[in-house]
């Protein structure tokens, strides 16, 4: 039996009273491209920083490549096999890209820097201070993969990359996966998940909502129908067997997700004047909206959720000292 790349059990992190993530269970198999999807502040960065040992869990634990994160000694050696791209990576301003890579290579080795730099070129002899966001991101990619890690954990790795480089990066990730490398990365971009992931875990407000194979997700999805009518819509008219989801949009139009045939729809539409009718393939967005909404329904701790919204936790807003980061 192979050891999972990442195995998370009941992982919980509170910053004081503020929730980062709560009771997270997740297994990332070896050799997969695994997406970790959620809106900003959902707890994606917190999770990543927990499994890399940067934060100490309030409760629960995790193993990375079979080594528990709380085993201080063993977790040092296993990091030979881990690569990481932090969210919004900052290097050493006055140091050139080359020297930065030399330094990081001195700590963990460097088997394939040249090859990576050919694919993701950066102005190596310029100080990083002058790098664009995209170049910094490329430097981060090179350092994360140059020591041939078995697992790479990335926090929104494509932010700042231009579309061409993004495509190149997706292609690169698929090649790495085919060589047996496990990749776990967070994102809030749905198309990215659709394009590269084998599986995706969806997180919302610090809790895991679903883990799905992308193929299954897309197979289950149907057609999106949008109806514009001058009449008042009774949503009950559209509750037929094929309907997955029906809702009135803020602009007054009707939006349905339907799988199967259109008989029920055609019958229902007979009762209305139609200004406009559009039928299209579901985008992955529609599929995910389903998860986000479903969660809304069964959250019993409504009041508490409200507080969380006022003080979003996690990725973009750590609770303390955000204002002081600027002095670095």
């Amino acid at each position: 039996m192979t050891v999972p790349a990442i195995d998370i059990e009941g992982l919980t992190k509170f910053y004081g009273d503020v929730r980062g993530v709560e009771d997270l269970d997740l297994t990332v198999p070896e050799g997969e491209l695994f997406g970790f999807l959620g809106p900003n502040g959902a707890g994606k960065s917190t999770t990543i920083r927990l499994i890399l040992g940067f934060l100490k869990p309030t409760e629960g634990t995790a193993s990375v490549l079979g080594v528990p994160i709380d085993d201080r000694e063993a977790f040092i050696d296993v990091r030979n096999d881990i690569g990481h791209i932090p969210g919004d990576p900052q290097f050493y301003d006055d140091v050139t890209g080359r020297k930065t890579l030399d330094y990081l290579a001195s700590l963990s080795g460097d088997e394939r820097r040249e090859e990576l730099l050919e694919r993701f070129p950066v102005p190596l002899d310029r100080p990083v201070r002058g790098y664009s966001r995209g170049n910094r991101q490329k430097l981060a990619i090179v350092q994360a993969f140059m020591h041939e890690p078995r697992l790479v954990v990335m926090d929104e790795p494509t932010s700042g990359l231009d579309p061409l480089v993004q495509q190149e990066f997706y292609e690169f990730l698929r090649e790495e996966r085919d060589r047996g490398v496990s990749v776990f990365f967070s994102t809030h971009i749905l198309s990215e998940v659709r394009e590269v992931c084998d599986q995706v875990a969806i997180i919302r407000k610090g809790r895991l909502v679903a883990v799905e194979h992308i193929d299954d997700l897309l197979e289950r999805s149907g057609k999106v129908v949008t109806v514009q009518t001058p009449d008042t819509i009774d949503i009950a008219d559209f509750d037929f067997e094929e309907t997955i989801d029906a809702r009135i949009e803020p602009d007054g139009s009707l939006r349905l997700v339907i799988s199967g045939n259109y008989d029920g729809l055609v019958d229902a539409l007979e009762r209305y004047d139609i200004d406009d009718l559009e039928v299209r393939e579901t985008a992955i967005e529609d599929v995910f909206m389903h998860f986000y909404d479903a969660e809304n329904g069964d959250e019993s701790a409504g009041a508490r959720e409200g507080t969380d919204d006022d003080h979003p936790v996690g990725d973009d807003s750590e609770p303390e000292d955000a204002e002081e980061v600027a002095d670095a």
């Binding site: 990091r79 030979n80 881990i82 990481h84 990576p89 290097f91 700590l107």
Partner: peptide, 18 residues
């Protein structure tokens, strides 16, 4: 603190450095 502030510490501590 300088490295933690700027998060460059993550590049170091994800490597086999205690």
């Amino acid at each position: 603190a300088g490295e933690v502030d700027r998060k460059s510490v993550e590049f170091i501590l994800v490597r086999p450095v205690s």
